[in-house]
Design a protein around this nucleic acid. Sequence first.
DNA 1: TATTATTATTCATTTGACTGAATAAAAATT
DNA 2: AATTTTTATTCAGTCAAATGAATAATAATA
Lengths: 144, 144
Amino acid sequence: MNKTYRQGQILKLIRSRRLHTQDELARALRSIGIPATQVTLSRDIRELGLIKTPDGYAEAVPDSAAAPEVEPLVREFVRDVRAAQNLLVLRTPPGHANAVAVALDNAEWPEVTGTIAGDDTILIIAPDAKTAESLRQKFLEMLQ
Amino acid sequence: MNKTYRQGQILKLIRSRRLHTQDELARALRSIGIPATQVTLSRDIRELGLIKTPDGYAEAVPDSAAAPEVEPLVREFVRDVRAAQNLLVLRTPPGHANAVAVALDNAEWPEVTGTIAGDDTILIIAPDAKTAESLRQKFLEMLQ
DNA sequence: TATTATTATTCATTTGACTGAATAAAAATT
DNA sequence: AATTTTTATTCAGTCAAATGAATAATAATA
């Protein structure tokens, strides 16, 4: 069973009814044909940034929600990294730039003053040229 | 060595100089620290939709460029699929909707009249409700 | 056409992501 | 505080993607 879909159904379930424990959630999922153990749900809950409330599991307020990790996204989607002055230009396959930029924004690195994403290009504004270059190195290391 | 990055560097290389054979390309890559065999490059070239011209390998004109496969993207990114009348709503993690929509647009399925993508939501317009429902099934099967 | 050069495919191996069983850790309850 | 319930972690197994060696298929050239 597909992980992203399972996580989507977890979100759907906790929005529609109160689920207080991971075992309860496991049963709810099983009833819609998605088998998963408590171990897997523990991981899903962390990845989705869910929090446990007296009313059951709930989504965290946006800013504290689980931020996607930068490195896996860079490793999967970044085709090229170029520096120009204090700017960095990352290229991705078509349509993927935004996802990488979202992760970068959430990460709130000091080296990243801001980002703008198009369809296959991300512009990263760094504080200065030196930082941009070291940031470039950081990305290249992620790409090995 | 990372696949997406290697493919990005292949694009960069063929834009900057004429590379006539896959072995030539392999050598060019090796010189910038990216080891790859001819076998791997044969696959990369297909995935990138490159074409062989008298001036060496080149990118295909956009429309005939290699379209990303729908199924792997759906499997990796789609969290939920809902139908309403002749419309289908797909949900993805933040930032990934566009990539899936790009693949759907390129696929030019008869069941998909058009798509609109936001940040984490894709609206698919189908010709009619029946088609929308069968399309929903198609997606659910991809997700197993 | 025969030969050589180039590219694509098959098969086996490697690698990493995902998952579950067992269990440790933490929280809740008695 | 002791017990029970719930959650997180470790370790090992499974599976799919990525890759290369060998080789088949195709294209270019003599």
